[in-house]
Every structure is written in structure tokens, then in C-alpha cells.
Design a binder for these strands. Structure first.
Length: 474
RNA sequence: GCGCCUCUAGCUCAACGGCAGAGCAACGGACUCUUAAUCCGCAGGUUCUGGGUUCGAAUCCCAGGGGGCGCACCA
């Protein structure tokens, strides 16, 4: 079936019996300088080749690892071809497993099929490619030449799978909501704009799935989540890619305290699944994800950190003078809530190392969160801060359409004053709330940031297979 | 968007005002148990681009482009 008659033709399929890892697992223990009678078929890329006259060695690498191939002209008719392989060629081989005199587990091959040739070289076999630009543009090479790149991405893909399993085990349903939005709502950010020709209508790439997920709650789905790409038209930096992945989930009948429990359990479970412990090292320091995480209000944390009394009840003039003191240039529309938030972000957030729930944000800066049940001017909202950065944002959802309308109005006013990240009035969302939304807790987690923590990298582009790059100059 | 750094062979890097080089890869050859195999040979360049200074520029200066880092914005 898969005979190779024409010289340049390569087969359409190859029947693998083993991965390199399963060869290692099955035969790793055999004695040095012995042969088994066990035949294996493996496939992958030739990453090293050592031809030594009448005997040749190659390192065959696949998704799971690598194994040595051993070839001799007596055993292998196409020995000549084997010796002429290029680094990077894809081959499928068959042979008996044994160990060489030096104790290296090897496949003593008697059949070779060239599955694909590498017309381009793989770079320095020791250094691989280190040019960062080339690495990201040509990930397909980078994944073969830098093991950490492969590990990071494979961790990433594993984590999203773990999240799905965790949430599905708890009765959450994975849903999909629109990416093309007539209004870019659900977060404070500048959107990408696009256009639908047939409808002659401007659309925005979503900056958050939030408002549609909550419409699903109104529609009767009680526990929903979406892991999806969101798009924000902002600068690119080591921590920002214009498209990134968010997990958002909404649970009817839950409040932000319930969501806090869910969040710390979810994250610490993932940390344990990946690292085998709740304690991991990040950028040279230890992070401890063991539950329960610290819980403190934003005002308490800001006050402790600055040694000043920072609260919504602090007189405006005093807050403004503190802001000045910390180099924050306050703007006309800012009330006490915005000032307190800015002071907290400037002075406190980056100092919070171990996972901390920062709670009870000012209503003024939380247009979609429900008023705190006992504290006026505050909402039932928390952010989870890890290693000085926001990992999660969550709240008891605002379900009152009148209050939501008032919050949107305030946003529209901010927009009029020049805040180009302010939200718009979303009449359809308000209509949904008017039909009645049950008490609901919601959560958003930046998946890329989570992977950065798990993989001990400070570069968001390391955790994205194909980060946004400027157009390549040719 | 602003500041600083950087760009040399396919890859990793030298040369830092005086003839552009090495290792790996490629190509030709030797080699029957290697481990980044080794050895011999051969080839490889608009030194990111364009100006300028200089007897002479990869090197110094200016402008542009790519990339990195920091700041700002944000998740």
C-alpha cells in the first residue's frame, strides 16, 4: 500500500507502534550491549546524525522525546540514504530494540522510510535559534530547537484542559458567545474596529465576553464558562499581547464569596497538577498557592502599605494630595473611588506577592458589580493578586437594570470627557436585565498571565504560540 | 507614544578606525559502537538600508528600518 516507487515520492502514512517515550519506558532497563527480539516502528525528526564509516547513529526526536537509531549496511539496505539524511528530515523506521556497548538504548534499524525532507536547515545544533524575533516568527523551528518553548506551550494546552475538566466536574457548561460585537462592552479598554459589508455595519472585536455570558444566565443557563480570545487595541509589551485568552465564568445563585472559594480551589488545584505542590518558584522567589488565600479590603491594604489612611471617607482634598505625593496626576472626572484605586495600584498592588484577594472595590470604578450589601459606595468585587499582578477579577454581578443604567450613564459621561476606554450604553443588555437576572457571581481570569506564573516567565509572548508581530520585512 | 540598547555567513558569535574571521550547518572525502563523534578538504558576505566624517568605516556621526528592555496604557 505504501510502497515508494518514484524516488522523490514520500509515503502518505506510516504505521507507528511506539513513541520514543514508550520505547524508553518498555526497554529502558535492559542490559548494556544486549539485543532484544522486540520490533518497534517509530517516527519523528532526525535531530543529530553521526556517520562513522560502516555504522551510523542518529537521534530521532518525536513529540515525547528522543531515542537513538543505530544503522549498519548489513541490516539496512538503504544505509546510504540513511547516512545522507539532513538534520530535520522526518523519517519512519523499523528495527529491534537493544543497547549499544556504551549503554545507549537504540533501535537497530532494518527499514527506513523518508517521510518528509527538511529543505531548510535547523540552525546551530547546539545553540539552535536564539534571535527572539526569529523564534516567534518561526515557532515551528523554535519548538524543535528550544525545549523550554515546547514545555511552556504544552503546559499551556494542558492547563486549559485542566480548567475545562475542573469546571465541567462542577456542573459548568462551556459556551460560546459572539466575538463580533456591535458594542465593545464588559471591560474598560480600546477595541479593534471592523466592518460588516452586507449589513454595512461597524463591529468591534470583543474586549470581554462578559455581557453575553450574563445574557445566557438571564436565558436560564445556571453555570456557564467560556475560554476565549479577547482583543484589546493597546500597546504590545512583555506583558501585553493584543489578543489574549480569558476564562470567564458565571454561576447563578452565587455571590463573590462563593467565587472566591472557587477561584482559590481552581488555581491551587492547577498549580498542584502542574508542579505537584502548592509552592512554586517564580522569578527567583517562592509563591505559595495553598488555600485559603489572604483576604483583605482594598482600602485596608492601601492604608497599611502607605501608612496613611486611604479610604473612600477620606476627604477629597486629602486624597488628592496623597495622589500628588505618589506622582499620580488626577484628572477632572475622578471621584474618591478612582483616586483610592489609583493610589492602591501605584503603591500597593505590586507588593502583594503571595495570592491575595483584594476585596470591596469602589463602586465608582466598577460599573458592572453589585453594590456591597453593607458598605455604601463599595461593590462586592475582588481581584486576585499574585506576584504583584492581577490574575483574576470577579464580583457579585449587578442585576438591577435601573442601577446598571445609571452606571452606564456615568460611563457615557466619562467618555464624553475624553476617556476613550469608557463603556457605552448597552440597551439590549439593560433589556435583558429587565427580564430579570438571578443573583450571580462572575469571574474572569487571564489565562496567559496564569501560564506565565506556572512557567516562571515574565514574557507573555513565551506563552503564546504565535504572538502578534510587526509585518515581516522582506 | 517617549528613553536606552542592539543588528556581521543559513545558525551561534568574533573582529571595535587599517586585508571581514571562527565554530556549527551545507558541500567533497576518511572512519564498524558514537553521544554537540572525530579528522582532512572546499565553499560561503550589499557587515540591516541610505547619507556623512576620514587617506581608509562592520567600527565614528546623522536619518530610516527590524528587534530587545524600561516607562506610559492595560489584563
Amino acid at each position: 500500500m505504501d510502497e515508494q516507487i518514484p524516488e522523490l515520492a514520500t509515503p502518505y502514512r506510516f504505521e507507528k507502534s511506539d513513541s520514543t517515550a514508550s520505547v524508553r519506558e518498555r526497554f529502558g532497563d535492559i542490559e548494556t550491549a544486549t539485543m532484544t527480539d522486540q520490533r518497534v516502528n517509530v517516527a519523528g525528526r532526525v535531530m543529530l546524525l553521526r556517520v562513522q564509516g560502516k555504522v551510523a547513529f542518529a537521534e530521532l526526536r518525536d513529540e515525547t522525546g528522543a531515542v537513538q537509531l543505530f544503522a549498519r549496511p548489513n541490516d539496512l539496505n538503504s544505509f546510504e540514504r540513511f547516512c545522507n539524511l539532513s538534520l530535520g528530515d522526518w523519517i519512519g523506521v523499523s528495527g529491534l530494540v537493544g543497547k549499544t556497548r556504551r549503554g545507549e538504548l537504540s533501535i537497530f534499524i532494518d527499514d527506513l522510510k523518508v517521510l518528509a525532507i527538511a529543505r531548510r536547515g535547523f540552525g546551530d545544533k547546539w545553540h539552535g535559534i536564539t534571535d527572539v524575533d526569529t523564534r516567534y516568527r518561526q515557532r515551528y523551528v523554535d519548538l524543535w530547537t528550544s525545549p523550554t518553548s515546547r514545555n511552556i506551550l504544552s503546559t499551556r494546552f494542558k492547563v486549559t484542559s485542566l480548567i475545562r475538566r475542573f469546571l465541567e466536574d462542577r456542573g459548568f457548561v462551556e459556551v460560546e458567545t459572539p466575538i463580533l460585537h456591535p458594542l465593545a462592552g464588559g471591560a474598560l479598554a480600546r477595541p479593534f474596529k471592523t466592518h460588516h459589508n452586507a449589513l454595512d455595519m461597524d463591529l468591534f472585536l470583543r474586549i470581554a465576553p462578559e455581557l453575553y455570558l450574563k445574557r445566557l444566565i438571564v436565558g436560564g443557563f445556571e453555570k456557564v464558562f467560556e475560554i476565549g480570545r479577547v482583543f484589546r487595541n493597546e500597546g504590545i509589551s512583555p506583558r501585553h499581547n493584543p489578543e489574549f485568552t480569558m476564562l470567564e465564568l458565571y454561576e447563578a445563585y452565587a455571590d463573590y464569596q462563593d467565587i472566591m472559594l472557587l477561584t482559590e480551589t481552581l488555581i491551587s488545584d492547577i498549580v498542584v497538577a502542574i508542579h505537584g505542590s502548592t509552592k512554586i518558584s517564580y522569578q527567583g522567589e517562592q509563591l505559595d498557592f495553598s488555600v485559603p488565600w489572604e483576604r483583605s479590603t482594598l482600602e485596608e491594604l492601601a492604608s497599611t502599605s502607605t501608612g496613611l489612611e486611604i479610604s473612600l471617607d477620606t476627604p477629597m482634598e486629602v486624597l488628592k494630595s496623597y495622589a500628588d505625593q505618589f506622582g499620580i496626576s488626577s484628572e477632572p472626572g475622578w471621584g474618591p473611588g478612582k483616586l483610592v484605586l489609583e493610589i492602591y495600584e501605584k503603591t500597593t498592588e505590586s507588593k502583594l506577592w503571595n495570592p491575595t484577594f483584594v476585596t470591596d472595590f469602589p463602586t465608582e470604578v466598577s460599573p458592572l458589580s453589585r453594590d456591597h450589601r453593607t458598605k455604601p459606595s463599595r461593590v462586592e468585587r475582588f481581584e486576585a493578586i499574585v506576584a504583584g499582578r492581577e490574575l483574576a477579577n470577579a464580583f457579585s454581578e449587578l442585576v438591577d437594570p435601573d442601577e446598571q443604567r445609571a452606571r452606564f450613564k456615568h460611563q457615557v459621561e466619562l467618555g464624553r470627557q475624553g476617556d476613550d476606554e469608557a463603556m457605552s450604553m448597552d440597551e439590549d443588555y439593560l433589556r435583558a436585565l429587565e427580564y430579570g437576572m438571578p443573583p450571580t457571581g462572575g469571574l474572569g481570569i487571564g489565562i496567559d498571565r496564569l501560564i506565565m506564573l506556572l512557567c516562571d516567565t515574565s514574557q507573555i509572548r513565551e506563552v503564546i504560540a504565535f504572538p502578534v508581530m510587526r509585518e515581516e520585512q522582506r
